[in-house]
């Protein structure tokens, strides 16, 4: 068993809103191993980004981490003093945000957005930081001529690469990628994912890869976790989860994506709409949309449990 890098224990994140408290992440426990790619799937609004934000302790009002701990190499991120937290951010964990297109400041040059993070965390001189910036751009396949351009002068795919270059700047142990390619077309997406794979071979970082595209994840992730309404409802080896989903929600999710390679299948997806977090039912959160809902499902919240050591599922119908 390889070493655990990040451990999330019983994490609960609430949005404190005028009309109630929405629990966007509910008692989630997860771990990411060194060098591992962990995929996190689930439909939009299930709490993936909220979970990701917690790992860098980025939440601000109205979000509130009400319970749990996040241990990075044994140190609780949520209890870090501001100075330690600043050093931890990007040095240990960098983030490629969901809207990577908008995560570059439009009026600051690429050069500065690359070098400022280097200079904030290391003693590098302006000159050294710039050399490093050029090196980083070359790593992601961008010509150094582009160093002094502004984000608006680059195409979407290039901007995305720049963001990845920034994420690599301090060679962190973990890179969180929150739907890094959703805004790109399929060809560019492919290119970037291949490149990412190569970079991972070179640098050996772990990735938390967030996407709603399970088929994509089955290809690139080692393990996949599936979230529904803030709960982690299934976790297992990527191929297993994708080819033999157990939870009815995962089954629905798998079938709502056509396989690129396989034969055409009919898509049945998941009936119903996502849960209103302010109005959760008693029992299982998925009951209203579940094809085999029983009496017990309306009474008791299913807990994550396992048949086999590598597979966890939260469902009463095991």
């Amino acid at each position: 068993m390889s070493e655990v890098l990040l451990e999330i224990n019983n994490l609960c994140v609430d949005y404190v809103l005028p009309n109630g408290i929405a629990r966007a992440v509910n008692n989630v426990s997860l771990s990411i191993k060194k060098g591992e790619t962990l995929g996190l799937a689930g439909e939009s609004g299930c709490g993936k980004s909220t979970l990701a934000f917690s790992i860098s302790n980025l939440h601000k009002a109205p979000a509130l981490i009400s319970e749990g701990e996040i241990l990075f190499q044994g140190q609780d991120v949520l209890k870090m003093r501001p100075k330690t937290l600043k050093a931890y951010r990007w040095n240990n964990v960098s983030v490629v945000f969901q809207s990577a297109m908008n995560s570059l400041n439009p009026v600051i040059s690429i050069a500065e957005q690359l070098t400022d993070v280097i200079r904030a965390h290391t003693k590098a001189s302006a000159k050294d930081a710039e050399l490093r910036a050029i090196e980083l751009l070359e790593i992601v396949g961008i010509h150094k001529e582009r160093l002094h351009s502004f984000p608006y002068q680059l195409s979407g795919g290039m901007r995305q690469r720049v963001v990845i270059a920034i994420a690599l700047a301090l060679e962190p142990e973990l890179i969180i990628m929150d739907e890094p390619t959703t805004a790109l077309d399929v060809v560019v997406e492919r290119e970037i994912l291949n490149q990412l794979y190569e970079l991972k071979q070179t640098f050996g970082f772990s990735i938390l890869f967030i996407s709603h595209d399970l088929s994509l994840m089955a290809e690139i992730a080692d393990r996949i976790g599936v979230m529904y309404a803030g709960n982690l409802i299934e976790l297992g080896l990527a191929k297993e989860v994708f080819h033999h989903p157990i939870h009815p929600y995962t089954k629905g999710l798998v079938s709502s994506f056509p396989s690129i390679h396989g034969p055409k299948e009919t898509l049945y997806g998941i009936p119903g709409s996502p849960l209103n977090l302010l109005d959760k039912p008693q029992g299982c959160d998925f009951q209203a949309r579940c094809p085999d809902c029983h009496h017990k499902c309306q009474q008791e919240v299913p807990r994550l449990s396992s048949d086999t050591p590598d597979r966890l599922v939260a469902c009463h119908n095991l």
Binding site: K86, W90, F97, Q98, N102, S103, L104
Partner: peptide, 20 residues
């Protein structure tokens, strides 16, 4: 989003506040 990213980068809050 670029503000969140600047914060995630661990830049000083003065820098995020003024420059970003």
């Amino acid at each position: 989003d670029y503000i969140t990213m600047a914060e995630a980068k661990g830049l000083s809050s003065t820098r995020v506040m003024t420059r970003y």
